[in-house]
Simulated assay, not measured.
Amino acid sequence: MRALGQTFNRLRRDRQGVGAVEFAIIFPILLALYITAFELTIGFSVYKRATRAAGAIADLTSQPQTVNKAYLNTMKDVAAAIFVPYGTTGLKLKISGIQVDANKIAKISWSWDQDNQRPYPVNSVVKIPENLKQPNAFLVHAELTIPHTLLMFMSTLSSKITPITIGRDYYFAKREADPITCSDC
């Protein structure tokens, strides 16, 4: 019994492995924090690119006097170029021309989505931000959504985690007084 007590006292005073034990306890927490920070950085980058893509698409669509489905279909390529290197799998894009009448009521003039369909009926009333309700104004509204999946954190649970949908929309006023027409929307 005395030998056992001496061994226990010797182990209690020995401090050689304390750093390794502390590191073993703290390492999983530090690793989780690092991976979480990495995931957040990637998510914010995708969010920023979604904002940039929606703005660029609305800007490019507001420049010509007339558009058609072929022109609007090229906006998928614009989004893909902005999202490099992330890819655009699952990207959903809608572009609408909105006419605000003299009574400040906004109505859809034309609309298009990435499947060459009309997502909104013509002449349907839509809500727009109050500061954009100018009499007889024409707006281009670009809506972009893209799913973002976590890359590494808890990869064994990734099948149970649904992707985060990042969505941005952007309004852009027509550069000239006349409204933009879409010949085949």
Rank of each mutant, 00 (worst) to 15 (best):
A70V: 11
G5P: 07
K133W: 05
K92N: 15
M154E: 11
C182F: 01
R168W: 06
T7G: 08
A80F: 05
E143P: 09
W112T: 09
Y170A: 11
Y86W: 12
T36H: 07
I95K: 00
I57D: 03
R52C: 08
F38R: 11
M1Y: 12
G90T: 09
V18Q: 13
T149K: 14
I98M: 01
Y120K: 05
Y171S: 08
L60V: 02
G97S: 03
T36C: 14
Y120T: 04
Y120G: 02
G87N: 03
V18H: 10
T165K: 12
A106K: 07
H141K: 06
A106C: 13
K76A: 13
I98K: 00
G19S: 15
V140S: 00
Y47F: 14
K133I: 08
A37F: 06
Q16K: 14
D59E: 14
S183T: 15
G97A: 02
V140H: 00
D169M: 04
L93G: 02
Y171Q: 12
S124E: 14
G55N: 14
M152N: 07
P129F: 08
L93W: 03
Q65A: 00
V78G: 00
G43Q: 10
N103F: 05
F23Q: 02
L11N: 13
N9M: 13
L150M: 13
M1G: 14
Q117H: 04
V125K: 06
I166H: 05
D184C: 07
F172T: 00
V67D: 01
K174S: 05
Y171L: 12
D113A: 07
G167H: 09
F172S: 04
C182Y: 02
T61G: 00
